[in-house]
Nucleic acid binder design. Sequence first.
DNA 1: CGGAGAATTGATATGTCTCAACACTTGTGG
DNA 2: CCACAAGTGTTGAGACATATCAATTCTCCG
Lengths: 252, 252
Amino acid sequence: MTTLNSHGPARAAYVPFRVPPVHVPVESDWSNLSEVVGLLRYDGQCSAGMDVPVFRRRRLRAGRSLFSMGQEFGGLYVVRSGNLKTVMTHAEGSEHVISFSMQGDLLGAEGVCEHHYWCESFALTDCEVIRLPTDDYFSPGRTGDGVERMICWAISREVGKRQASYAITRAAKSEVRVARFLVEQSERHAALGYSPTRFTLAMTRRDIGGYLSVTLETVSRALSALQQMQIIEVSNREICIHSMAALRAFEG
Amino acid sequence: MTTLNSHGPARAAYVPFRVPPVHVPVESDWSNLSEVVGLLRYDGQCSAGMDVPVFRRRRLRAGRSLFSMGQEFGGLYVVRSGNLKTVMTHAEGSEHVISFSMQGDLLGAEGVCEHHYWCESFALTDCEVIRLPTDDYFSPGRTGDGVERMICWAISREVGKRQASYAITRAAKSEVRVARFLVEQSERHAALGYSPTRFTLAMTRRDIGGYLSVTLETVSRALSALQQMQIIEVSNREICIHSMAALRAFEG
DNA sequence: CGGAGAATTGATATGTCTCAACACTTGTGG
DNA sequence: CCACAAGTGTTGAGACATATCAATTCTCCG
């Protein structure tokens, strides 16, 4: 697999490979705990300071990276708006797409343990993220107000998501993988209140291929095949699901 | 892929599929915090009650399951001894092996968020695990003594491990996957103080195949090929790595 | 010893990758 | 404004790897 030279969206200015992360936010604003709880859809309780704006926001232009592989851990991030992809780049130059993130998703979960980020997150569209400074919340002597648990909960959710994407990624046939990928995207759009049957993909065929471990040509062929079967309709990044039942049941 | 009918080791009594988890430990003993810190190799601080035996141990016979898919979450487990495999079973009956666990590994990390276990863990050999009751440690009002952070750290480590196994699982060619699997096993044995070049696999070819997303025949052929190349020597579950450098560098 | 699963190996079928050509979109600069 | 460059996406043909089916041997345990 050849190295990607662009992580930006199709319709934005070309951004050269491996843009250094922006450390100082261009525009800075603050979020409070209740916004974070809402974004994460946390089902537990936090008892203190729900309205105090203590979480720094960071804006990211399409194509920019939020953090890079090996960079020192500087807290978790919750996506407030926009789309991102997280990739691991190998020595040979091949790239594995670990996840696609949208509103409410957590980024950097492996860093709490490793003290470094293990992968690189790129903005696919202009984004806004909220930083959760884990060190502040796990300091000894601090009285538990539920935030530690929420952070732990969010990281645990990340484990579950990885597991779910395992199943998608490793399905036998490529058309099945693509079908499951579309179901996943549909569900995520639905969870945010958008149409589950009509949406625009934020990523390229190559990115999808990197996520599903197939080539971009195979992704394209699979989409065409699903369209041929009248299950979906595709036009570039625009997806329309004609039969969700058929898409879910699709097993090749 | 056909459903596995045995999750036990080759050399143990045959155990029928889907043994109900043992809820009441046959023999019960208790572990203290310093043992858990040591097993996890936690690099942080815990300030209180290091020697108080508050963590219940559970013994598991080979072939038994620790928890099953969908079962209500009842805490995390740290492996004290033995080997386990964690699988996700799909409706069609296919199985994906999520991970192989040994001493110091964490099990059930996705349950903190989901309130249910999402996969099933089987003992490959007789095992002993230690239960971490997360609810007790994240209760509101509790003063932070570092244990919450350790739990969060351990779950975060799990995210990192999943990511690492991603890379192994998704390498292009099957021989490369098997080579990386062997490197992974070698490193884990080394981390526990055993020989990195001579060890016994706890799992069957079918399990390895389920982990790497290839058939058991392909695993067998890949092992034979690596032996042919003088990189390793194989005899059933016995592995001897002749050239670790060649195994690491192997790219097909 | 017998039975059952584990492991190896071979022949063939099938699916995906690779290489290649081409159409389309978007942003840029003459 | 249009042509151009660069990236995106589609489709085809052939090479290659893995799955599948099948036969055989090995190992362990009762």
